[in-house]
Design a protein around this nucleic acid. Structure first.
Length: 302
DNA sequence: ATCCAGGATCTCC
DNA sequence: GGAGATCATGGA
């Protein structure tokens, strides 16, 4: 398998300058790829390599320059307690990419297509609600729904910018309020998720101690959460790097690249992914997703 | 106008 | 336990 290699210990190099943190000598970090590869719905593009995000109640601007990437406004305290783990800055991506590329031509192409992807560690509750909204929906619409929910139910953290609401804050949401956020038939699912979190039936903090299988079944107790949404939450909020969410794009990619274009079911898709990509299946998923979705979307525009 | 989107559920058999 | 319709919404 070759997955047993211990990761190199990576020390992030950065300097603090006034209200910003400047990351130096950091490879495998392209903010455009990180945000636009489908794992996150709460960002805005302000220019080439220039984005605004809101996460963990903080507003942050990120700009990629020729020599470095800068985060502002922030400080070393927030950087150490939030952004360092949020952007997964301590992982050695070059070894991950090397292992995946060894699988073959397809994975090498997918990794080379967007080598600057990183695996965000998002807030579990925000991630859960966001991916409940994602079902049978389009990404621009998902982003609008999330934004509407924040504006309506979240705390204003600075003028015109709102944090994603906590479960307690979202408890005052009812069907009609959520419907005005344009979430459609998913409103009842959101309410069920909030209820189960507030009653403790689903403990989003305790989930760190569960096995991946138990965590998946636990999340699926929420109405509107099936395998795919649960897997996204596990991958994007709980750092379960071995899970492989099977969405329509991934099914298309796996069929085309690994099963000669024939119809496949999720069982054979997963067994191939887990066997070939092992503990990095989740990373493989992100490279593949970004690869096929970008290629096919551009092709359809022609 | 009709179809469809980072799916899940309900209803049939 | 598998196949098929249904679910809001808005853009193509």
């Amino acid at each position: 398998m070759g997955y047993g290699i211990l990761h190199k210990v990576i020390f992030v190099k950065y300097i603090q300058s006034n209200d910003r943190i400047i990351l130096t000598e950091l490879d495998s970090f392209d903010i455009a790829s990180v945000l636009e590869c489908g794992q996150c719905f709460r960002f805005a593009k302000l220019g080439e390599g220039f984005y605004r995000i809101i996460a963990f109640g903080k507003l942050l601007f990120i700009r990629r320059n020729a020599e470095n990437t800068e985060l502002f406004p922030t400080n070393s305290g927030d950087f150490e307690s939030i952004w360092r783990s949020y952007f997964d800055l301590d992982r050695d991506y070059s070894s991950v990419k090397l292992m995946l590329a060894k699988d073959g031509e397809i994975m090498k192409n997918a990794v080379d297509f967007s080598p600057g992807i990183r695996h965000l560690s998002q807030d579990p509750f925000e991630c859960l609600i966001s991916f409940i909204i994602s079902q049978n929906n389009r990404i621009p619409m998902i982003m609008k729904c999330v934004e509407n929910i924040c504006t309506r139910y979240g705390k204003e953290i600075s003028e015109g910018f709102y944090a994603f609401p906590t479960a307690e804050e979202l408890a005052r949401a009812d069907i009609s309020g959520l419907s005005e956020c344009r979430v459609g038939f998913r409103a009842k699912y959101i309410i069920d998720a909030v209820n189960k979190v507030l009653t403790g039936e689903i403990d989003l903090n305790k989930n760190t101690t569960l096995t991946t299988g138990d965590l998946r079944e636990n999340l699926k107790k929420i109405k509107g959460v099936g395998d795919k949404v649960a897997d996204c939450v596990m991958l994007f909020a709980y750092g379960r790097a071995e899970v492989f969410p099977a969405d329509v794009w991934i099914i298309k990619a796996m069929s085309r690249y690994f099963f000669d274009g024939r119809d496949i079911n999720k069982k054979e898709l997963h067994s191939l992914a887990y066997e070939r990509f092992g503990q990095h299946a989740g990373m493989a998923n992100q490279y593949l997703y970004n690869y096929i979705r970008t290629l096919d979307t551009e092709k359809s525009k022609e």
